[in-house]
Nucleic acid binder design. Structure first.
Length: 826
RNA sequence: GCCCUCGUAGCCCAAUGGCAGAGGCAAGCGGCUUAAACCCGCUCCAGUAUGGGUUCGAGUCCCAUCGAGGGCACCA
């Protein structure tokens, strides 16, 4: 370190030295501890999404945690007792993959990475409360996953069913609907196929309405984009169920439709080829072999093929007929894959004239198209385009002449009266499949007994601890590795005492993150998942910060769990996160950083080269937090220069500590108070880049005052430079702390408190008013801020250059916006 | 195909319907220096993607087009 020249040491502090100097001090003083009993400050819960410990922190973490820290540190400066916790979302596939690929123990691998990340977060000076750390792979944590599961089981919200599930052949495990993106596995991008399996589900569909309706609380506080995505995902559809008799079947079949008004236009009937109903109807049909061949073909197709909307319609006529309840017409029944088995009832009435999908099918199979609604558009028979808009009913007996909406009302009533139909609601949202055939997760606390069936593990026996991985084959093979842990899996039934087996699957890791924000309020409690009194103190989370990648999955599940906990009487809020900020990604030259692309920028290298403060500041200053940051546009060197410039100010101030700023230069004080006010507004509205710009203005103002203004001894200069330190403490904690010390204060600057902005200093005595003639600026006049509109108009019209410009021209109108502007219209 | 967001100096970005510039990067000039770097100061640079409209006044509001990004997409 002897290479550092004395000169550079004078001009800027060495980041590595600042780090060594201040980290132990901060460890000791723990300025962000939030659990003190005697703390009288109002509480505020600021939460960053916790990381998965896949290695050391990367650029994305650096950005996310810098942004979260701005908010957390700001509210501390504003006098709040801020809870800003951190933990690790440490169950999941990468640990297992590391184990398979490199022979590592998943547990060792995970906990080593946590230690690495933890050290990096400390160095990165994140304002976390280190007393509240949680790790989801600790039995002390996942015990409560099991507890929640059993509570839900008790309430009928956790259940097992056999169904065609999403299967990733590469990961060799089932996936939730939410984990299938465009027919591909979200994790490994391999095509997802269907497999019939018995799996555990959580009944999130019971909460569909609340998940939808409670979003009203979040409008304006969450990004509109996220709310839209959640609404789309749940997708509530309001319609009616209608009973159709099937010839040769004792029971009628119910279909779901949003368009009961078009009932008279039904010309055929379709059942989902992979539904039980289709199999049943085909069984007694002459078309059985054709049906079976078609079914096989459909099963083979991957989701990605099935999702292609421009695919030609396929299907098989089952040689069976349904009867239209309103007119007794016989409708041929087809099996097709364009009808989904798990939506509605898996069967539909087809109205080709007014539904494009039905029309496509009708044209492929030469089925009749009957128009029952006059929309004023051309005949679908000729155009091939179904008419779906509003209009007047025709060819529909008692409905003729009614408009669409009235017809829907009337036919629904008529059907209800005849017990042929009923209003109904459907959702795109499906129940949440939580079983996973993998090792590194929370064991499902159920014992399967040949006589008693499913038996929940008694609460006092929790946690069901995951067995050690030694001796287990973790390679994906379609069944859980836990099944092979004989000592673990073989138990006696808690009910009858006979030999029984544990459920060998583990839970989806999204279970872990669905309630971790509640655990933080009392992370070490061993008698309940969280302390209910503490939860009432802290919930809801005032500010949540994280990536938009979790817009559907995590946020939907967390909202669901919150409502369940509410129903269990454990908390008094129905929504967990009051405000949400989605930060953008860090990219390089327009595309995501990755090793394979060769554009990976290593965080540790950048930190070594420029220092933590410069990187944090550069991240925050790069642009609006919601936008992606292109590292190619970021200048850590520029940030470093600015920080040195700010730091130098602290050595120039000669006014004594504690001097009354009121005796200082008023003009500089006005600048200081205005900028600190504007910076506060900027932070609260997520315009952190603007807040950084304010700190630069503040530094420029102080520099100028010291060099060519009121001089370094003026109390106003001290006030200004101290404000710089306080504002910078949000972005550049080391530099700010060092400045604070050089200004004669004791640590920590983080607790110094925001400048008490004097409103008197925010209002100017006089202001420059712009005088326009027809929108073009002609003159500027200095006027008192409280000037009346009439006085200002007179003053403007009397202005020399205005008089000159106007000449003899007649003034049509004068717009006066006192005291800022006068517009003379000619 | 449908829906949403965004197009401002060479670049990143600011601007409650009221003077297009807060701030930075890059560039140029000057001061400091034996010299260079650092530092200090100054300067240059767009009429706001395009075309209409509303308004006394539009980057900002409305419509259309182009371009970029994102979401949804057989859910009856």
């Amino acid at each position: 370190m002897s290479t550092a020249e004395p000169q550079t040491q004078v001009n800027s502090p060495d980041p590595a030295q600042l780090q060594e100097k201040w980290l132990p001090v901060w460890d000791d003083l723990a300025p962000f501890r939030s659990g003190r009993k005697d703390d009288m400050r109002p509480r505020k819960y600021v939460l960053d999404m916790f990381p998965y410990p896949s290695g050391d922190l990367h650029m994305g973490h650096a950005e996310a945690y810098a942004l979260g820290d701005v908010l957390a540190r700001y509210w501390v400066q504003k006098g709040f007792n801020v809870m800003h916790p951190i933990g690790w979302d440490s169950f999941g596939l990468p640990a297992e993959n590391a184990a398979i690929k490199r022979g590592l123990n998943p547990k060792t691998w995970t906990y080593e990475n946590i230690a690495i990340q933890r050290a990096s977060m400390r160095r990165y000076a994140c304002s976390f409360d280190w007393d509240r750390v949680l790790v989801t792979s600790d039995p002390e944590y996942y015990k409560w996953n099991q507890w929640f599961f059993l509570k839900m089981y008790e309430k009928g919200l956790a259940y097992r069913k056999a169904s065609a599930v999403n299967w990733c052949s590469d990961c060799q495990t089932v996936l939730a609907n939410e984990q299938v993106v465009a027919g591909l596995c979200e994790r490994c991008d391999s095509p997802v196929t269907k497999k019939k399996l018995t799996q555990w589900y959580l009944k999130i569909t019971d909460y569909a309405d609340r998940l939808l309706d409670d979003m009203d609380q979040l409008v304006g506080a969450w990004p509109e984009k996220v709310l839209t995505m959640q609404r789309n995902w749940i997708s509530r559809s309001v319609g009616a169920e209608v009973k159709f008799e099937i010839i040769g079947r004792p029971e009628p079949v119910v279909v779901y439709t949003t368009r009961p008004d078009t009932l008279y236009g039904a010309t055929f009937f379709v059942v989902a080829v992979d539904s039980d109903l289709a199999t049943e109807l085909a069984a007694k049909s002459t078309a059985l072999s054709e049906f079976n061949a078609y079914l096989e073909e459909v099963k083979k197709a991957s989701d990605i093929e099935r999702l292609a909307t421009d695919r030609p319609k396929t299907g098989v006529f089952l040689n069976r007929f349904a009867i239209n309840p309103v007119n007794g017409e016989q409708l041929p029944i087809y099996a097709s894959d364009y009808v989904l088995a798990d939506y509605g009832t898996g069967a539909i009435m087809a109205v080709p004239a007014h539904d494009q999908r039905d029309l496509d099918f009708a044209r492929t199979f030469n089925l009749p198209v009957k128009v029952v609604l006059d929309t004023g558009e051309p005949d679908p028979n000729e155009t091939g385009i179904a008419t779906v808009g509003p209009g007047t009913l025709i060819n529909s007996a008692e409905l003729n002449g009614l408009v669409k909406d009235d017809a829907i009302g009337k036919i629904t009533e008529t059907l209800a009266a005849k017990k042929l139909g009923t209003p109904a609601v459907n959702y795109r949202l499906r129940d949440w499949l939580i079983s996973r055939q993998r090792y590194w997760g929370t064991p499902i606390p159920i014992i399967h007994c040949s006589t008693c069936g499913e038996v929940p593990v008694p609460a006092e026996q929790l946690p069901v601890v995951l067995p050690e991985s030694e001796g287990l084959d973790l390679t994906p093979k379609g069944t859980s590795p836990l099944g092979a842990a004989a000592d673990w899996v073989n138990v006696v039934c808690p009910k009858c005492g006979e030999p029984a087996k544990r459920d060998a699957d583990t839970m989806d890791t999204f279970m872990d993150s669905s309630w971790y924000f509640l655990r933080y309020v009392s992370p070490n409690l061993d008698t309940a998942p969280f302390d209910e009194a503490e939860a009432k103190n802290w919930m809801p989370v005032a500010q949540y910060v994280g990536g938009v990648t979790h817009a559907i999955l995590h946020l939907l599940y967390a909202r669901f769990f919150t409502k369940v906990a509410y129903d269990l009487g454990m908390i008094n809020v129905t929504e967990p996160f009051s405000r949400l900020l989605n930060q953008g990604m860090v990219v390089m030259n327009g595309s995501a950083m990755s090793k394979s692309r060769g554009n990976l920028v290593k965080l540790t290298d950048e930190l070594t080269e420029h220092g933590v403060d410069a990187i944090r500041l550069a991240m925050v200053f790069a642009g609006p937090p919601e936008d992606d940051v292109d590292w190619a546009d970021v200048s850590p060197a520029g940030s470093k220069k600015f920080l040195a410039r700010a730091w130098r100010l602290s050595g120039d101030v000669t006014a004594k500590v504690g001097v009354d700023p009121k005796t200082g230069d008023v003009e500089l004080r006005k600048v200081t108070h205005r900028l600190m006010h504007e910076a506060a507004v900027a932070v609260e509205t997520y315009r952190f880049n603007v807040a950084v710009a304010k700190s630069m203005e503040l530094v420029n103002a102080a520099r100028k005052a010291i060099d060519t203004g009121c001089g370094p001894a003026d109390p106003a200069v001290r006030e200004c430079v101290e404000s710089v330190a306080i504002l910078l403490s949000l972005f550049a904690p080391y530099t700010a702390e060092e400045m604070w010390e050089r200004l004669g204060h004791k640590p920590c600057v983080a607790l110094a408190g925001w400048l008490d902005v004097d409103p008197q200093l925010l209002v100017a005595q006089s202001i420059v008013c712009v005088v326009q003639i027809s929108g073009k600026v002609k003159a500027r006049i200095e006027v008192p801020v409280d000037i009346s509109a009439a006085d200002l108009e007179q003053l403007a019209l009397a202005d020399e250059s205005v008089v000159k410009a106007l000449g003899d021209i007649k003034v049509k109108q004068v717009i006066v916006v006192a005291p800022k502007l006068v517009n003379i219209v000619i």
